[in-house]
Design a binder for these strands. Structure first.
Lengths: 210, 210, 210, 210
DNA sequence: CATGAATGAGGTTTCATTCAT
DNA sequence: CATGAATGAAACCTCATTCAT
């Protein structure tokens, strides 16, 4: 029984320490971005907060950009993992259910780490090359476009590409702004339940409207 | 006789020159932001481009933040001037026309200086304190909310505040992304005309839908 | 009497200060290179020794390379100024006198700032791009080659290009090593007079030999 | 029975492996110096290329200087081995043959590993203390001086020490520059055969000239 | 002895800001 | 008021070296 399911203690010790350090650095970066903002995320500050020397940071990340990129990719891939699985389910549903599902998925995904998401999104242009930014955007619009094409019979729309653009971006912005807003006043009055209801209506009426 | 030709130039000579210098600096800042990006907008570079000494720049603006703030406020107030006048007209129209008008106003406003608008928006958090950002946001949502309240009879909606939030933010994002996007592929397929039509339908169906 | 010959006090004050600073930085660099070596010539150390802030150093030189390049060019141009004038005189003399003159010129030129010359020569590859190094080398070989071609009747040699290569490089190395050597033992026994005599004989016999 | 086949491999197992590691590190250093230059020769890079850990490198060399010194000494001793044997033969010949032989020896020695020789020579001051550099230089000059003293009857020269200085240094520089030059233009036109002929004439005429 | 993760002093460079002229 | 030379804190990053495993 070499491969029992409950333990992975045999990983090589050196690599375990490395992975710890890497995680430590990434988590420190995330923490600083969340609580102190982009400008305070200097490599020295990150290393200090991670409890490692500046040299260690540069052992694992060739430069600051790469560190931020790695964090962004990790964060986005965590969101995507959530999203991809559930979205593929949605894509077999009829329009109203599919929209409801999409909204739910998006709300949940943004609830994962809203503060970090806000900072990373806001500074995307300084972290990722435009090409990569577009790739990420198209990832969703293409997914939705595929779905809309499939269901075009139920949809009253002359430009499905534009429709997916509108759906994805307004959904993204509205969930983002509603959840990530650190303004206590706003957070208060936007309940997830009613936001959900409104978003569903916004999109349903848009696609199926007369 | 509002403008006698011979007396005006002599009035407040120093103040006029001051205003010139200030405008010069602001325009240089805007130009650099548009064409070279946020990172290249150093105070020295701005002063050089404006044709004034760095010392003069600091004569008129206590620090870089203040300069960026002033530019942002100028830009937003120019947009608002356009918007406010025409929006107040819209506010007396019935829902469908009002929405069409709002969309038009927004599209026009963003067409004013899209590149500058993109940069300022993206770096808002580094320019304005959150408080000020919220103030600007509420400026629109409150305006729209006021209108929706006035027309609540024609609207099928249980939370007009949330509705105005949704309207303002998705309108803002979608026009912004559609216009300011520098991705040639996207610019190509999003025609203003069809975007306009879709936005109108999105919001009309949302508010008046069953 | 605005232009009296004994004073130049009207130069613009700002530019005078700048030039002072630049000279100060260059001299500090030269001093450190001479007395502490290439490795100790850090930008911070240079600025400190020059009595200016590190910021000032970078106001006048975009980077360390440029500073070293400027110093090298200044040094070489000072040497060349000496050399060029006198060498052009030599080029009209018959072979034996021309060689004697060339040796003298070289000895004098290297006596200008031997320690600095040694360091700059040794690290040329880190200061100048190879292309520039070659350009400097060819400057002399071409000059000598031109002379040899002109006097080819008096010279017993089948390959004047190779001859000029040999002349220039051994002259350069031998004067350089003899003068710049900081080993007191060697400096002692190589008198300029006898070195001069030997070099002249070395080259005269080479060119006019049977 | 000097080489029994079955016993040798077992002798000093650790020391043999040590020597292997040391050679490996030295060869890696040489390779990097030759192909990537002095600046890229970092201890970590060397260790990686040698296939040993950075810790092991420091097991065998107390610091980077010592490593470079060891490599330099190894390289020079390999050159010297070639030179010493053949030069001692030359020293019994009459002047013209001796000079021809010296030139040949030098050309061959420099052809051994010209790229490495170039790098080590250029950075000698950062590798060896001046004292050691002088020791190496004198090694040759003293050898040649000894020969010249022995043959002083055939030589027309008033200062044999200076003569050996001139011989050794110009021979060294000219072979070095002719061979190690990476400038394709120069490499092309300097054929070893004609360089050899010219060097022989240069030195022969110098020593035996009227 | 081997390993390689970790260290941190110190290098280069930037840029908002000040202040003597 | 205008100028622009000067400032220096602070950012990013390197690499020789150490030391726990």
């Amino acid at each position: 029984m070499t491969g029992s399911t409950h333990s992975k203690p045999r990983r090589r010790p050196s690599q375990a320490r490395s992975q710890d350090t890497v995680n430590c650095i990434l988590e420190a970066t995330a923490h600083i971005l969340r609580s102190e903002g982009f400008r305070k995320a200097t490599t020295n500050h990150i290393a200090e907060r991670a409890g490692v020397s500046i040299g260690s940071l540069y052992q694992y990340f060739p430069n600051k950009q790469a560190l931020l990129r790695a964090l962004t990719e990790k964060h986005l891939s965590e969101m995507q993992q959530q999203i991809a699985v559930r979205l593929s389910d949605s894509l077999s549903m009829p329009v109203p259910e599919a929209i409801a599902s999409m909204v739910d998925v998006m709300l949940d995904a943004h609830a994962l780490d809203p503060a970090l998401h806000a900072v990373l999104t806001e500074h995307a242009s300084q972290i990722l090359p435009r090409e990569e930014q577009n790739r990420l955007e198209n990832l969703y619009t293409d997914l939705v476009l595929g779905y809309l094409n499939q269901r075009s019979a139920e949809i009253c729309c002359d430009d499905l590409k534009l429709a997916s653009f509108i759906l994805v971006h307004s959904l993204e912005t509205l969930t983002h702004r509603a959840i990530a807003s650190t303004d206590p006043q706003q957070n208060e009055w936007i309940s997830n339940a009613s936001l959900r209801r409104h978003l569903i209506r916004l999109f349903t009426n848009y696609l199926s409207g007369q």
